[in-house]
Amino acid sequence: MTPSRHYRIQSYCFNGVPMDAATAAGNCKAVTDAIRDIYAQEDMGSLVFEELYRCAYNLVLHGQGELLYTEMEKAMAAEVEGIRGSLSAVADDSGEFLQELLSKWHLHTKAVAAIRDIVKYMDRMFVVANGKASVHDLGVKIWRDSVVCSGDVMPRLVEAVRRERPAAEEPAGDVMAGVDKMLAELGDEVHRGVMDASSADE
């Protein structure tokens, strides 16, 4: 293990003083509160990127990367869980369901992009050094596991895709094209799974 020059300078600067628990918790809370606002698309103008970035940056710099990562993951998962809940309230019309699913997916990807920008330093340092999933990958994984592959969405999705699927020669509509793109991003397995299941019992 040869410590890089980079790290020696960091520890010199901070003299090995770890961040106290209250400050760490406060910084984490600022980030997770912002995650909630980002998903709610409220109050966005009052979010100051520099402050949030600095909170995340200082956490990672002072060895609190793990805390930040876990709290961020929890906050993101809670928001996505809320979305899943809202989807079950959507009427049983297949077109409407797909449309709603897609619009929530777009909300989610946009939020993940904003979160990734805020915690960029964590993504660059902590995630790489500890072999964790990047914020983007984590966002995809959470969506795949707790929305698309969940017990109440998957059957409806398969059914909706079966109904809305264009005939062989027809070009896919906007919604179906969007759904196809979303599934492709979630990985081959899910994509093929949905497509096979939706054409199997015709």
Binding site: M44, L47, F49, E50, Y53, A114, D117, K120
Partner: peptide
């Protein structure tokens, strides 16, 4: 600066993007 690039282009609609100014208290 990649940090500034993210700050100014992030999809979040943060206050920096709206006001075109960034404060660096540190």
């Amino acid at each position: 600066s990649n940090t500034l690039r993210n700050m100014l282009t992030s999809p979040g609609g943060f206050s920096e993007t709206r006001e075109g100014e960034v404060r660096f208290p540190e």
